[in-house]
Amino acid sequence: MTLSTQEHNPRELYYPEMAEITAIKQYTELEKWYEITLPGGRDLEHQPGQFAIFSLFGIGEAAISICSAPSKKGAFDICVRKVGMLTEKLHQLEIGQKIGVRGPFGTGFPVADFKGKDILIIGGGIGIVPLRSLINHVIDNRDDFGRLVILYGAKNPQELLFPDELQKWNDDPRIEYQVTVDQGSPEWQGNTGVITTLIPGLDLDLDNTIAAIVGPPIMYKFVLMALKSKRLPDENIYMSLERRMKCGVGKCGHCQINDSYVCLDGPVYHFPDIKNLPEAI
């Protein structure tokens, strides 16, 4: 048997590209936002919902969602919660320092199919991070889409991400933005309660609404139940799933859910494709 290695570029699989951190914002104690610039300001050419694998030498690699829209040129954004070895170290980096990037990987939101539709965003906790990529895509191509409804839930007001943008979403007459926190604070005047409490009050054009859901594993079941009682068809629901990822290219096996590799077939899934997939939701 002859196997050829000529057709593909060996650099692409495990060798990172060294990119520069060009801006940083600290949102919460645990979450920081970074703007990353690839060599020569090359675009990452990702789709909303895709991820890349970031690395620091001596520390390791981690899969992180891209949170800027493809319409942002010359650089892209990530928002990182400090939860593991890499993200801990990443939080100590400063503007001008470099990190390794491989990607983009995975399947994002099929935004071309969403044209002309109303977009319902449902984000819980750091689930808002990959969704920001889709939100900004809709905002930047506003006339291609119908309504933009954003539901955002967090544990408490201190954990809300993208605070400057939340205000803009709130003020934009073409965005219907609602936020809720599980636990309020003395200053908090908004909604309290879990994110599903925002769903019953929605007035949706059922056949023309696409729901995009991202949140902690526990959230999906309840959001899906709430959408089901709104009679939103399953075909209109997309969601992004988190799994352990090492290689990003469908080899290492860690992210597998049944026969599906989250790093290739996901992280964004069309709900009908995983509805009957055990261990998925």
Binding site: Y14, S55, F57, G58, I59, G60, E61, K246, C247, K251, C252, G253, H254
Partner: peptide, 23 residues
Amino acid sequence: YCFNVVDNVDLSLKDGSRDRHWD
């Protein structure tokens, strides 16, 4: 063929390697 990837550093703490091993 599943594997894990880890970064290992020399004792000099100046150089190292990214290695994969069977998982």
